[in-house]
């Protein structure tokens, strides 16, 4: 480990990629979920992970993190738990908040990996927490018990928690699900801004329209592997959409940016 912590210099990333996966394979109960998946995520990328239900999006992300056993290599799975906590923040799909903790304290949990045992938040830590709370628009509810908020509000609190961890890579499993349109767009813009700042985001999505407008790159899963990997235009093609989801689509470059709309089930 270098002496400088990632929290102080997010743009300064000596290893080229924030995540590197080679020939990753996972089989659960004798069934291959996916085989030989390889890709790298570079600083500055906002990668959307697409695929139908059961294609293995969550499994791929958890295997990349080293949370489940997998064959092949993942740069994150090779780290110790403590080092990994400085390399990646993870927002699981299950939005679990076990106790009625105030929103600001829950977001502050994201600073845990940066604090020595038993230490209190420093002013810098508090600033990161406040920034995350602001970014997710949680200021009005910062003193309320997080477990009593609505589902969408809880999701925003958990995204803020991951933002507060302040890592070079942020991974989230369907962070936009259950958010209202304004917060969906705001959330995607926050991830895009992280990427512009030289970090990266790796996010699974079901909303193809959001993926088309905000992601810099898409990875499409299906048939036990990666069907396509590249800029949104090369992935959201009618052929690939028909193959992966069995739908027809409408996809145009407009004056307001790319617009993507699923049309019919084929």
């Amino acid at each position: 480990m270098s002496a400088t912590s990632p929290s102080e210099q997010p743009a300064h990333t000596p290893p080229a990629e924030n995540l590197s996966i080679q020939n990753l394979s996972v089989s659960l109960r004798g069934r291959d979920v996916f085989r030989d998946v390889s890709f790298d995520i570079q600083p500055g990328e906002f990668v959307g992970l697409l695929g139908p239900n059961g294609a293995g999006k969550t499994t791929l992300m958890r295997a990349a993190l080293g949370l489940i056993a997998a064959k092949g290599n993942s740069s994150l799975a090779a780290l110790t738990a403590a080092d990994r906590a400085h390399a990646v923040a993870w927002m699981p799909q299950a939005r679990e908040i076990a106790w009625p903790i105030a929103v600001e304290r829950l977001v502050a949990l994201g600073r845990l990996p940066h604090l020595p045992q038993g230490a209190r938040l420093t002013p810098q830590d508090q600033a990161k927490v406040d920034q995350a709370i602001d970014q997710m628009g949680l200021q009005p509810m910062r003193h309320r018990a997080a477990s009593r908020l609505s589902g969408g509000e809880q999701a925003r609190v958990l995204i803020a928690r991951a933002l507060a961890q302040d890592t070079p890579l942020l991974m989230a499993d369907e962070p936009a699900a259950g958010l209202d349109p304004a917060h969906q767009i705001a959330t995607m813009e926050i991830f895009a801004r992280l990427a512009q700042e030289g970090r990266s985001a790796f996010v699974s999505l079901h909303d193809l329209g959001l993926a088309a407008r905000h992601c810099t790159r898409l990875i499409l899963m299906g048939d036990h592997g990666v069907l396509a990997d590249g800029p949104p235009d090369t992935v959201l093609t009618p052929d690939l959409m028909a193959q992966a989801f069995g739908i027809s689509v409408w996809h145009q470059q407009t004056a307001q940016g790319p617009v993507f709309q699923p049309l019919e089930v084929l």
Partner: peptide, 23 residues
């Protein structure tokens, strides 16, 4: 008494706790 930190992280579930550096 030394487990407080891990228990705090577990508030967010096992996956989240593990990626927050908890063994």
């Amino acid at each position: 008494l030394r487990l407080g930190r891990g228990l705090d992280a577990l508030t967010l579930g096992e996956d989240a706790a593990q990626t927050m550096g908890i063994n």
